[in-house]
Structures are given as C-alpha cells and as structure tokens.
Simulated scan of single mutants.
Amino acid sequence: MTTRSLSLALALAASALAYSPAFAEPLKVVASFSILGDMVKRIGGDDVAVTTLVGPNGDAHVFEPTPRDAKALGEAKVLVENGLNFEGWMPRLVKTSGFSGEAVIASTGVKPRELTPEEQALEEAEEAHEHAGEKTAEAAHENDHGHDHGSVDPHAWQSLTNGAIYARNITDGLAKADPAHASDYRKRGEAYIAEIKALDGKIRAEIDTVPEDQRLIVTSHDAFGYFGQAYHVRFLAPQGVSTEAEASAQDVAKIIDQIRAQKIRAVFVENISDTRLIDQISRETGAKVGGALFSDALSPADGPASTYLDMFRNNADEIVKALKTS
C-alpha cells in the first residue's frame, strides 16, 4: 500500500470512528426538577448530558424559567417532566424555547391520587388567598399560567411503585430518542428498577413494625399523599399540595387542635418549605420537630438525599424513628 493510500485509509477509519455511536456526543436531556434529573442520570449514564431546571432544594411550585432555561431546552433532544399539572410553567417554556424533541411524561401510567374534599377545599382557599388583590393585567396573565393542580395530587414519585413506572417511562423515552444506545438504556433501566423494588420491600417491612393506628405524621406541605397511600401512613398538613400560598390561620389552628387531641409528638419540615410554620406549631403544641423530609427536591450532593433512592431511605428512616419514639 502506498503512503497516499495508507493516509486515505487512516482518514476514512478516523472519520468512521468519529461518527460511530461510541464517539457520538451525549444525548442532551432536560429534566424539569432534581428527582427526575437523578433518574435520567442513573438510566442514561455517560450516554446523556442532563440539564436540570429546578435543582436541589428548589421548589418547582414557584419556579420561574429564565432565558437560559429556554436556551437549554431549545437545544435538547429529550424533555423529561412529571406531568399531572406539576410543572404549570412548562407549556410556556416549551413554546418559548421552540423545543421539538422527544417529550417524556414520567408519570404516564400512574394511577393519580384524587385529592380528598378537604384537600381540594384547602387548595382552592389558598389559591384564592394568594391571588387576592392582584389587579394588574400582568398579574392576571401570570394567574392564567399558575400552579393549579386541579383535583389530582401531582407528587406521584412519593411511592416507589410509581417510581418504577417513572423509570420505565424514562428508559423508553431515551431508547426512542437514541436508538444507537437503546440496549444500554434498557440494561441500566432494568437494574435501576430492581433497586427501586428492593428498597420498596425494605421500607414496607420497616414501617410494618409500627402499629398502623400510630402512623400519624404532620408535615408542612401536603406532598406525601402517595407515600401515605402506599405505606399506610397518615399525613396531616396545614398547607395544600402547592407551596405557592401560605396556610391560613384557621388551617394552622385546626392542625394544632388535632395534634393536641391526638397527642402527636413529632412534626416534620421539608427541605423546600419555610420552617416558621412548623416552628409555630411546635411551640404551641410541644411537638418535637423531627429531621428534614425531602418532598419535591433532592438535597445537594453532600446531603442525606442527593439521589431519589437516598431520599426515600432518609424519609422512611426519619418517619419510622419518629413514630417509634412518639
């Protein structure tokens, strides 16, 4: 082979390698909030580059997208969002960004938890309170795109059974958008789902050590309905399923009366919530403030809930500990 032929062969080989799946750029994925971002990273591995819009300790209920977020979404090939009206700001962001890739609704296939009449009434009262006095056209426009979840609880990831559904939907979405790495996504997805199911069994066993009539927890915001449904724990919250509005004095007083009547000794604050509400309840009832629970967001990397599975381990451990000492 001549020197020229050898050079041409090497150039063609290098070109083929550059366009092979092994040397392709990672799939650009945007996840709406940190819990979904972690799931995408676990399933996508090195084959994805993930941008998470609402990061650790962030509150998706009150999130306002920036031009930078719109740019990231416009460049992405996949969007992973929760659905169930959780990201009320997402339709505007998608329109602004011009996103045209694969949209994955992680909660597809989940059986939504309908809000109880009491929860629905609280939600409506808080929204009315939040929007009272907003008279300007700008405020009215914002309200048209608010964070109303309707009659459905959007926090479906708070059941590990649902978490496995989320993981399956994310796996399928990545595989569809990037067929060259589909087998890798499915392999990692199956391994991740197996971890989720194993943790689910462990948590059920731990919570079963507490008599069911003693499983009563107070949290600042009503984000644990699916957890309560899955693991037979009753949660009370002075704030509705959204953190967007403050709880009324009447709702707080009702919770305080119930804590006193039922002698509840432990209350929890969440990582996305203002601690003042729970501090007030603790002062007026003598109930002990337990460790932090993580509802809508993970902790930073150096915290106790930096992944979805760690979040569940932390929450279950804190709840069981509180129930056993109350």
Rank of each mutant, 00 (worst) to 15 (best):
T2M: 09
T2Y: 14
R4C: 15
L6C: 06
A9P: 13
L10M: 09
L10A: 08
A11Q: 01
A14G: 09
S15Y: 14
Y19G: 14
A24T: 06
A24Q: 08
P26F: 10
V30T: 01
S34D: 12
L36N: 05
R42I: 08
G44F: 00
L53A: 14
V54E: 00
V54G: 00
G55F: 09
A60Y: 12
E64N: 13
G74T: 02
N82F: 12
F86Y: 05
E87Q: 13
W89N: 01
M90T: 15
R92S: 12
S97H: 05
G98C: 12
S100M: 12
G101Y: 03
G101N: 02
E102R: 11
I105Q: 13
G109K: 07
V110P: 00
E114R: 14
T116H: 10
P117N: 04
A125L: 11
A125N: 10
G133W: 00
K135H: 15
T136N: 06
A139R: 14
A140Y: 14
D144C: 15
H147M: 12
H147L: 09
H149S: 10
H155V: 05
H155L: 04
A177S: 06
D178N: 04
H181F: 03
D184A: 15
K187W: 06
G189Q: 00
A194I: 04
A198F: 12
A198M: 11
L199Y: 13
L199R: 08
I207C: 06
D213G: 11
L216Q: 02
A223R: 00
G225W: 01
A230K: 02
Y231K: 03
H232P: 07
H232K: 12
G240H: 03
G240K: 04
T243N: 08
A245P: 00
A245K: 02
A249F: 11
V252H: 03
I256K: 06
I256S: 02
I256Q: 03
R260V: 13
A261I: 08
Q262G: 15
I264D: 02
I272L: 05
I272T: 07
S273Y: 05
D274K: 09
D274H: 05
I281V: 14
A287L: 04
V289K: 09
V289T: 10
A292Y: 03
L293V: 09
S295R: 01
A297R: 00
L298D: 05
P300Q: 15
A301E: 07
G303N: 01
P304R: 04
A305I: 09
T307H: 06
L309C: 08
D310Y: 08
D310K: 13
R313M: 15
N314G: 11
N314H: 10
A316C: 09
D317P: 13
D317T: 10
E318P: 04
S326V: 15
